[in-house]
Design a protein around this nucleic acid. Structure first.
Length: 355
DNA sequence: GAAACGTGGGG
DNA sequence: TCCCCAAGTTT
């Protein structure tokens, strides 16, 4: 045990990455970073973290912001309920804690969007409380260190990991302990080809001792991802394009997008079969050719097809939640990745036109 | 407990 | 190209 910590502290002191949220003990900033990092890689989260803190520097500014402004900052990051939960939590903190961050684990864990991991991370990083923060990295490290055979997704695994980590948890330096365990999993104890030769605690690792690091953590087979086939209709006329707001439930809730037809199988429908009811005069309204299929996602396969309307009189049937929006205005609306990418590179439209 | 919920990078 | 999975939480 002594040796374990000597090695761990020395390694962490020398190899900890310099990450923006490690420079602060401000619970608000730590909370923001932890929510952003849920199921999200550090490299992807850093810019979002800076933008978020710059735009909403404290609990009050987040609580009072228009929801669409928060979603706009979150645009492209995914799991958008995180952004809404953060505002709900900020408002709760205004009402219940006078705009201050709660300091007890139980209170932190009650905040919307804050589960066991995030609560422990905030409690330890901001307040030094000795709660083990068990994320995917720590699960992997613990599974190998103690050769835990329970599936990593199971409640049994979590119980065992928690018990072991609580036993290990030092009275002082709870924050460093959690950070170091996470860092170990993130940088050396990787899912495949772990760098055991550089690991400070390899000699105390049961999986390493028995040459079985590649068998841990044990995982259950996972269900195949659901595919979605999207047929998008891109309509533009005189500097305006047609957008609609998605429903408040389900994927991309409340974000904006082009008119779309989504199926979980490829129906092979023609543009008119899909969008015909949008037009009073379908034969005349759709003037551009079907252009290209764009492969957008890997495990959720999405195909996008774009068409143009060049006519002045687009004659679109009224749809609920549909609005004509000027191009400049679109820049301020929260959209999901397809639109996000489109707005980043406006030449998408041009490149499809050339076909 | 299982499914839903995004997106991006690495091997 | 395809599969994995990442500082998880909610329902």
């Amino acid at each position: 045990m002594q040796r374990f910590f000597q090695r761990l502290w020395k390694w962490y002191g020398n190899h900890a990455r310099n990450l923006p949220w490690r420079d602060t003990s401000n619970p608000y900033q730590i909370w923001v970073s932890e929510v952003i990092l849920q199921q999200t890689r550090v490299a992807q989260g850093i810019d979002y973290y800076h933008n978020f803190i710059f735009t909403f520097p404290d609990i009050a500014s987040l609580a009072h912001a228009p929801e669409e402004k928060i979603l706009k900052i979150w645009q492209g990051l995914g799991y958008y309920s995180r952004a809404r939960n953060m505002q709900a939590a900020a408002r709760l903190m205004m009402d219940k804690y006078g705009g201050n961050f709660p300091v007890r684990y139980s209170e932190i864990a009650e905040l919307p969007g804050v589960g066991p991991y995030t609560a422990a991370a905030i409690a330890s990083f901001a307040f030094g409380l000795p709660y083990p923060a068990v994320d995917g990295n720590v699960k992997r490290v613990v599974a190998r260190l103690f050769a835990l055979h329970e599936p990593v997704q199971s409640a049994a695994f979590m119980q065992q990991a928690l018990a072991l980590l609580q036993e290990l948890m030092p009275g002082k330096r709870a924050a460093d302990f959690n950070q170091a365990m996470i860092e170990l999993g993130a940088t050396l104890c990787s899912p495949r080809n772990p760098a055991c030769d550089q690991c400070p605690v390899a000699e105390m690792c049961e999986a390493h001792r028995t040459g079985t690091t590649d068998r841990f953590p044990v995982t259950r087979p996972k269900k195949a991802a659901v595919k979605r086939y999207h047929d998008y209709l891109f309509l533009e006329s005189k500097g305006e394009t047609w957008l609609q707001k998605r429903p408040e439930m389900g994927i991309w809730a409340g974000l904006y997008e082009f008119p779309v037809h989504i199926l979980e199988y490829d129906a092979g429908l023609s543009p008119l079969e899909i969008f015909g009811n949008w037009f009073y005069n379908p034969g005349e309204a759709v003037v551009a050719d079907r252009t290209e299929f764009t492969h957008l996602l890997t495990h959720q396969t999405i195909f996008a097809r774009f068409w143009h309307l060049c006519s002045d009189r687009t004659n679109i049937v009224e749809q609920k939640n549909c609005t004509r929006i000027a191009m400049e205005e679109i820049e301020t609306l929260p959209v999901h990745r397809l639109m996000h990418k489109y707005l980043e590179k406006k030449d998408w439209r041009d490149s499809t036109e050339k076909q």
